[in-house]
Nucleic acid binder design. Structure first.
Lengths: 186, 186
DNA sequence: CACTAATTTTGACAAAAGTCAAAATCGTTT
DNA sequence: AAACGATTTTGACTTTTGTCAAAATTAGTG
């Protein structure tokens, strides 16, 4: 079964009829390391689920790339939330490994939200969960020092430190790569 | 009209019949400075809108109070998101000024989400907007230094620096109050 | 295997933010 | 106006993190 549809089912009841309807709009792709899911300035937003692979979201600030989040297998991820804004994306989403994923455009998704009450409920729960995840990240950045944030990352996303380069992780933690290198040395 | 219902209407179409139904569950209160909307450990979550007044959300870490956010007039605010979790709150929500607000319990709200497709859509949009707001806060904490964060606060919540004590603002910015005092001196 | 490019580490130093204690200021209440 | 408590500011010093340049390591490619 499709990983995106499975993911949706985790959030609420999805009658077979609606699942079939959803399936019509879900597309799948495999992309190579370095390819982009979305580039800054584009006006396509989507929800996607990774089957295998790894992705990062980053934005540019003062001519530097800043990593906003990493996406692993089975995570439900979005570009340019809230999906209905339809404004040019300020973020870039790039694959760090060869990645197979399933996605649905926000246009189609909003259509399904409009048509099916169950879909709207699922969309709400996904967004509510997103709030919690992002709020925890903000809390970590607000209250923890560099070393504590790195330790938290190792606990909550242990594969991150294996699969992602030191520079990318440092950027995500809001520190310089030299600092992260020194934290690791300990 | 009720500030909470008005707020809901900003997010989507709300037929009169459903508005009437919603109105049955919305309660209003006025509380004094220092009172609590919710205390850590309680299992009541709600959505609320402030008519007049000011509120802060904080949690405890290493025996210190850490401010997570401030709520001003007309903002839509939630305790213990996602509302349906029904787990004990880890946050405290306390009024910093005499505050009049309107609220609905997550129990009642979820009932309305279940009953009315329009309500579910509005709830989803509220949660999606929440994601964006929290993500911007995380970005600020990740990329800006103390002085830049303080300047951002002055731009996006100008009344905060007027109405909230230095110690509370420092905690929200993730710095010590001595540091904020020195930033202000400049 | 050798060469190149990218990534990581190291060192010396600078800047930012924290710590602790004390003094100054502000707001309220008598 | 005096006195009290809470809040804010200041000073001296420490710790954390950043900066810059160079060296070391690793990964990929012919």
């Amino acid at each position: 079964m499709n990983a995106l549809i499975n993911k949706f089912k985790e959030y609420g009841n999805l009658p077979y009829e609606i699942e079939q309807e959803l399936a019509k709009y879900v597309k799948s792709r495999t992309k190579q390391k370095g390819d982009f899911f979305i580039k800054q300035g584009q006006v396509v937003s989507s929800l996607f689920v990774i089957e295998t692979g790894l992705v990062r979201s980053y934005f540019i600030r003062d001519n530097h790339e800043i990593n906003a989040w990493f996406g692993f297998e089975n995570a439900i991820l979005g570009s340019a939330m809230p999906l209905f804004y339809d404004q040019p994306s300020f973020e870039n989403i790039q694959f760090l490994e060869t990645t197979t994923y399933h996605y649905i455009s926000s246009k189609d998704l909003n259509e399904l939200y409009r048509k099916f009450h169950e879909m709207s409920n699922i969309g709400r729960k996904i967004a509510e969960e997103c709030c919690v995840v992002v709020a925890e990240r903000a809390m970590s950045l607000q209250t923890e020092n560099a070393e504590q944030r790195y330790n938290s990352l190792q606990i909550y996303q242990p594969s991150a430190t294996q699969r992602i380069s030191l520079g990318h992780i440092a950027s995500y933690l809001g520190i310089k790569q030299e600092t992260l290198s020194r934290i690791r040395r300990k």
